[in-house]
Measured scan of single mutants.
Amino acid sequence: KRLCLVCGDIASGYHYGVASCEACKAFFKRTIQGNIEYSCPATNECEITKRRRKSCQACRFMKCLKVGMLKEGVRLD
């Protein structure tokens, strides 16, 4: 089984260019469509796991980008 490159949960397929789970796919889409900017309360190096993926949105979004999710893949309509 493929794992989500962002949080390590089971991937539902390839989304925005990267093997990812439904939760991270939806999080990435919401962030881009809403043009949301997050800031990390710590040092921008929070560990993102299935259990902790909700704890820091800034680091989760940075990890989405780091593993290769493409903003261009999100439709803005």
Rank of each mutant, 00 (worst) to 15 (best):
S12D: 12
L76S: 10
A58F: 05
L3T: 11
N44L: 06
L3N: 15
C40M: 02
K50N: 13
K29H: 10
G73C: 09
N44H: 06
K29Q: 14
Y14E: 14
N35Y: 08
L3Q: 11
G34E: 14
N35A: 13
A19Q: 09
T43L: 07
C59E: 02
R52I: 08
L76K: 11
T43M: 13
E47T: 09
G17S: 07
R75E: 13
A58S: 06
F61R: 04
P41G: 14
R75W: 10
V18Q: 05
G13W: 02
N35K: 12
K54T: 11
V67I: 06
T43F: 03
R51I: 06
K66H: 08
K1S: 06
K50E: 15
Y16G: 10
R51P: 08
I48K: 04
A19N: 12
K71S: 11
N44W: 06
E45R: 11
K1M: 12
G8C: 05
Y38F: 11
K29W: 10
R2Q: 05
M69I: 03
V6F: 02
L5Y: 08
S20N: 14
R53Y: 09
C56A: 01
M69A: 02
R51D: 10
A26I: 06
A19D: 13
C59K: 04
K71D: 10
G73V: 09
C7N: 03
R52D: 07
A58W: 06
D77A: 09
C7I: 00
A19H: 08
Y16K: 06
L65S: 04
V67S: 10
G13D: 11
G17P: 05
V18R: 05
I48N: 15
V6T: 04
S39M: 15
Q57T: 06
F28P: 02
K63Y: 00
L65A: 07
C40F: 01
Q33I: 02
R52S: 08
A58N: 13
Q33P: 03
A19P: 10
I48F: 06
N44P: 02
D9P: 00
Y16L: 06
R52K: 09
C59H: 03
G8H: 10
M62Y: 04
R30Y: 01
T43W: 11
I10E: 13
Y14N: 11
P41L: 09
T49G: 11
A23P: 12
C64R: 01
K71M: 10
P41T: 09
A26T: 06
C46A: 00
C4E: 03
G17Q: 02
L76C: 10
C59T: 01
K54F: 07
C40T: 01
K63E: 03
E45D: 10
I36S: 04
E22L: 07
K29I: 04
C59Y: 02
R53D: 12
I32G: 05
S12A: 13
A58Y: 05
L76D: 13
R75Y: 10
R60S: 06
R60N: 03
Q57W: 08
M69N: 02
I36P: 08
D9K: 07
E47G: 08
V74G: 10
A23T: 05
K29V: 13
C40R: 02
E45H: 09
R51F: 08
Y14M: 06
H15S: 08
E45V: 09
S12E: 11
R60P: 01
F61M: 12
I48W: 07
A23R: 14
C40S: 03
R2P: 04
K54L: 12
V74M: 09
Q33M: 06
K71A: 09
E72K: 09
Q33H: 07
S20K: 07
Y38C: 06
H15T: 05
Y14S: 09
